[in-house]
C-alpha cells in the first residue's frame, strides 16, 4: 500500500510546455500511468505515447483520469487547477510556483465543495516508490519501504529521502506539500492517510520557519496518530520578516520560529532532529533494524 497514488492511478498532465513535457516523460519512465495531456492548441496530437487534449474536460471525458498534475505557468495555474477539479479528478498536484495567494484562497473553497484534494502549489509532488511518481522528484533516490515523508520543501525532501534510502529505510509515499502560505492538503491531512496505510510504519515530517503548520501537526499527532512520528525543522538562521525563497518561509511572529516549533513538537512527545543525520538515528531508534 501507499497513500494517494499507486501504480494504477490514472494521471493527466496539464501544461505541456518545456517543463511539463520533460517531466511527463520522466514520470512515464518511472512507471506512472499517464493517460492524457492537456495543452491548449495541441489537442489531437500525442506526446510520449499519450493523447493530448485542448481542455481538461475533453481529456477527462475520453480518458477518465483520477489525478492531475499542473505545470501551467503561474498566471493561469489557479484556473487550470479548477479545470482539473471540475473535470472530475479527485487529486490535483500543483507543481507551479508563484500563484497569487489570494487566488489560491479563492479556489480552495471550490475544491472543498467539489471534494477534490490538492497537493501544492509550489511543490515537488508526491511519489510512491516503485509504483508511481506525480511531480518532479528525481526517482532514483527513492526506495520502496515503510517510512512516510511529508515536507514543505523540494530539494530538502530529496536530501532527507536520499539519506533514508542509503541507510536502508525505504518510503511508502513521500510528499512535498508546498512552500506557499496557502496550500491544499497539510501535514494533518497526509498524517491521517498514513495512519490508515498498512505499509507505513513511521512518518517523518520536515518543516521550516513560517506559519504554525508544524504545531498543528504536533497536536494532531498527539491526539490522533498511533504510529511513531519524527520531526525536523529548518531555518534557524533566517532573519525576521525576510522571505527565505518560499513565500511561506517568513518569520512572522514568535510562533513561527524554528525554536518555537521544535519546542512545541517536543512538548507533544515528537522527537526532533537537529540535522538530517539525526533523522536517520531517530528513525533507526524507532524502527529497529534496517528494513
Amino acid at each position: 500500500m501507499s497513500i494517494l497514488i499507486d501504480k494504477n492511478t490514472r494521471v493527466m498532465v496539464q501544461g505541456l510546455g518545456r517543463d511539463g513535457s520533460f517531466h511527463a516523460e520522466q514520470m512515464k519512465e518511472y512507471g506512472t500511468n499517464i493517460v492524457a495531456g492537456v495543452h491548449p492548441g495541441k489537442g489531437g496530437s500525442s506526446i510520449h505515447g499519450f493523447p493530448v487534449f485542448n481542455t481538461a474536460e475533453d481529456a477527462a471525458r475520453e480518458t477518465d483520469p483520477e489525478c492531475s498534475v499542473i505545470f501551467v505557468p503561474a498566471p493561469f495555474a489557479a484556473d487550470a487547477i479548477l479545470a482539473g477539479a471540475n473535470a472530475g479528478v479527485k487529486l490535483v498536484v500543483a507543481v507551479t510556483e508563484g500563484i497569487p495567494v489570494l487566488d489560491m484562497s479563492k479556489i480552495v473553497i471550490e475544491l472543498n465543495e467539489l471534494g477534490t484534494c490538492l497537493a501544492g502549489p509550489n511543490c515537488p509532488g508526491l511519489i510512491s516508490p516503485d509504483k508511481s511518481k506525480v511531480g518532479i522528484m528525481p526517482g532514483g533516490i527513492f526506495k520502496r519501504g515503510s517510512v512516510g515523508v511529508i515536507s514543505r520543501s523540494g530539494t530538502l525532501t530529496y536530501e532527507v529521502v536520499n539519506q533514508l534510502s542509503l541507510a536502508g529505510y525505504g518510503q511508502s509515499t513521500a510528499i512535498g506539500m508546498g512552500g506557499d502560505p496557502v496550500v491544499g492538503m497539510k501535514y494533518n491531512d497526509y498524517l491521517e492517510l498514513f495512519e490508515e496505510d498498512r505499509e507505513t510504519e513511521l512518518v517523518v515530517i520536515v518543516g521550516e520557519i513560517g506559519g504554525t503548520d508544524e504545531q498543528d501537526a504536533a497536536s494532531f499527532v498527539k491526539d490522533r496518530i498511533s504510529k511513531p512520528v519524527v520531526g525536523y525543522v529548518v531555518g534557524r538562521s533566517a532573519p525576521p520578516g525576510k522571505r527565505m525563497g518560499h513565500a511561506g518561509a517568513i518569520i512572522s511572529g514568535a510562533d513561527s520560529t524554528v525554536e518555537a516549533k521544535v519546542a512545541f513538537l517536543r512538548e507533544k512527545d515528537i522527537p526532533v532532529a537537529d540535522t538530517v543525520e539525526q533523522i536517520i538515528d531517530l528513525v533507526g531508534d524507532r524502527l529497529g533494524g534496517r528494513n
Partner: peptide, 25 residues
C-alpha cells in the same frame, strides 16, 4: 538574503538552503 556571517552559501532549493545554513551553524 544577505546575513552577517563569513561562509557564502549557494544551494538549489529554499528548504535545502535553509538546512545548509542550519548545519553550518
Amino acid at each position: 538574503v544577505q546575513l552577517d556571517g563569513d561562509i557564502g552559501c549557494m544551494v538549489n532549493g529554499a528548504g535545502l538552503a535553509m538546512a545548509t545554513m542550519d548545519v553550518i551553524k
